[in-house]
Amino acid sequence: MEECIQTIMDYGLRSQGVGERLLPRTDFTLCQQFTLIGSGMIWNIYFGVCALFSGFFLATALALGKAARSAWFRKPSEWFIFLFRGSPLFIQFFFAYFLFLSLKGVIPYFSPLTSAWLGALVVLFFNTSAYTAEIFYGTLQSIPKGDTEAADAYGLQGWSRFRRVIWPTMLRLAWPAYTNEAIFLFHATTLVFFSGFPARQQKGDALYYASYFADKTFNPFIPYPILAMYFIILTLIVISIFGAINARLNRHLPQDRRAKIKFRPQIIR
């Protein structure tokens, strides 16, 4: 038990470069595997939370752009969404990494982009924006006509019409699908260190450590179930947070007309 606490002290923040430098090499204990994989989860949560938060705003803008009448707004949004939804995230990571590398060669100012914490975040940010924008665009089309007519009847126009009527309804309708998007974004964060982006000084994410253990022990039956457990817990947390927001968005509706969050796998990007 005390040994395990020592391990947690040593490796708890290993993925951030804090604590013991050398990874364990032989005689892996369960405690070490739990601690290191859990430590890697910090990266997954960081990527997921930051990309989701920033992606939300870009997605709203893109969805409005795609729904706009003017082709100047519509075409770029459509292309952006098609580009990021039509190609594998894995290839996007690779391409972005090498693009950033050559950018760095030309202008040294871009050098932070070649490290995972920023470069991968940018890719994930664009990717989730595109997927979310498609969801938002879909719900923007299915906003009940009565709502917009009511807004017109009240004389609401422009920004206040959007802010008070269209945007809340769009969010409310989109929320169940958006929850799924969030879950799968978290799952997609595991790709980061398996694509171009290097894990400097073995500061990797949860899957990085899980595959490290699987490689060293030739035994996939311990690290991957641990990883699965962490992700199931993360998924449950995401569902509960998004469920609470969903309840708040739907609070004006009678119980039976509220949108329920259904788990619909949309899987790999």
């Binding site: 997609a188 595991t190 398996f194 899957l207 030739f218 996939p220 990883l227 699965a228 796998p265 899987i267």
Partner: peptide, 20 residues
């Protein structure tokens, strides 16, 4: 079982597990 877990983890897991 495939719903709650990242897909790549499955890919990495199954290949070794099947092989062994």
């Amino acid at each position: 079982i495939v719903r709650g877990v990242p897909d790549i983890a499955f890919f990495l897991f199954f290949v070794i597990a099947l092989d062994q």
